[in-house]
Each structure stands twice: as structure tokens, then as C-alpha cells.
Simulated assay, not measured.
Amino acid sequence: MNNILKYTKSLFLCLSIIIGLTSCEDDETVFDRIVGYEWVGDLGFADRYGPLESGLYFDGNGFGTDAQCYYDDPNGEIIYSLPFRWVINGGILSLDYGNDYPLLEIYDVYVFGDELSGVLYVDGLRDGPITLYRY
């Protein structure tokens, strides 16, 4: 009986490690899954007329464009087009829009199908969970 309990604990430990390792994606996998697509969602941008939805396009050279429109616009007219630099390192996707904007970081980036998820940080402060959708 003692041996069975010992092996059960060992098996449980091994399974926990395997599940933990497979739930994280490496940076190259994330890179390959996001480059060349537009990812749409809420990054917290707004102007005096209301909140803006972001449409991020990632180029393979570390640059990208954020095409922003109002959520309630049925035509999806682009109001702002902001360039940004991006990098994925250690599971953190950093979006640098330059000196006029805060640094956005998405921690624990995970891409599954048409969804990119993680936890958004704005200038180092946790904002909350985020999901972007491939468009």
C-alpha cells in the first residue's frame, strides 16, 4: 500500500510538470502565429469621443501598425493609425508606441486558433486579462 501511494505521488508530480510545461508557448511559436495577421481588441485607448478598438498588425521585422476605430462605428472607419515597435521575450509581448504613449506589455501570451490572450500591463501596472481576435 505504501509503495502504491509513493508511485501515485510521483506520477501526479510528473503529470503536473508536463501540464505546466505544455501550457506555455515559446517565443518563436508566438512570433510565427501572430506575424502577418491583424489582431483586434481593447488595449485601453480612448479619445474625447469614446473608447477605441485596436487592430494590431505585426510585421516580421519588429514593427507594426495599430489601426484604431470607435466601437460603435458600423463602418469601422480608421480614426488613428499608430506605428509601434514590438518584441516577444520570455512570454511577454511588448508594444512600444513611442514617448507619447505608455509601454504596453502582454504577459503570459498564449495564441490558440484565432485568439491571443494574456494579461495586459500598462507602464508596469497590471490592467487585467486581455483577448485579441485574429481578423
Rank of each mutant, 00 (worst) to 15 (best):
D123F: 09
D114G: 05
D47T: 07
F84P: 15
D32A: 11
W86G: 04
Y70V: 06
R48L: 14
M1Y: 08
W39T: 05
L21A: 14
R134M: 14
L43Y: 12
R33I: 01
I34S: 03
G91M: 03
I34D: 01
C24T: 08
Q68A: 04
G55K: 04
E105H: 01
L104K: 08
A67R: 12
Y97D: 10
T131D: 07
I130R: 02
E105N: 07
G124S: 05
G41D: 05
V109Y: 02
N99S: 15
L43C: 10
K9F: 09
Y97Q: 08
L103C: 11
S16F: 07
L103M: 15
I130M: 06
N89F: 00
I106S: 00
G124Y: 01
Y110R: 12
R85E: 15
A46Y: 15
V40A: 09
G128Q: 10
Y101T: 10
F63C: 12
L52K: 13
S16I: 01
P102H: 13
G20M: 07
I78L: 07
I92H: 00
C24V: 08
E77W: 00
S23P: 00
R48E: 15
R33T: 04
N3Y: 03
L5K: 04
S23D: 05
L120Q: 07
E38Y: 05
C14P: 03
D96K: 05
L93Q: 02
L116P: 12
A46I: 04
Y70G: 07
P102L: 15
R126V: 06
E115N: 14
Y49R: 13
T29C: 02
L5A: 06
Y121K: 09
L11R: 01
G91W: 00
S23M: 12
G44A: 10
G76C: 12
G118I: 01
I88E: 02
L82S: 14
R126E: 12
L116K: 11
Y37C: 04
G44D: 12
V109C: 08
L125K: 11
L116M: 15
E77K: 07
P102C: 14
L13E: 01
S16W: 00
I34T: 02
S16L: 14
V122T: 13
K9T: 05
E28N: 14
R134T: 03
F31R: 10
G55P: 01
E105M: 03
V35M: 09
L132C: 09
D42E: 15
F58Y: 03
W39S: 03
G36N: 06
G76T: 07
P83V: 02
G128M: 10
Y133I: 14
D59T: 05
I78P: 09
L21F: 08
V111P: 04
L52T: 05
I34R: 02
S54P: 09
G36L: 06
T22P: 13
G124L: 03
E115A: 10
E25N: 02
Y107G: 00
D42V: 02
L125G: 03
T131V: 15
G50V: 06
G41S: 10
G128W: 06
N61C: 08
D100Q: 12
S16H: 00
S23E: 10
I4T: 09
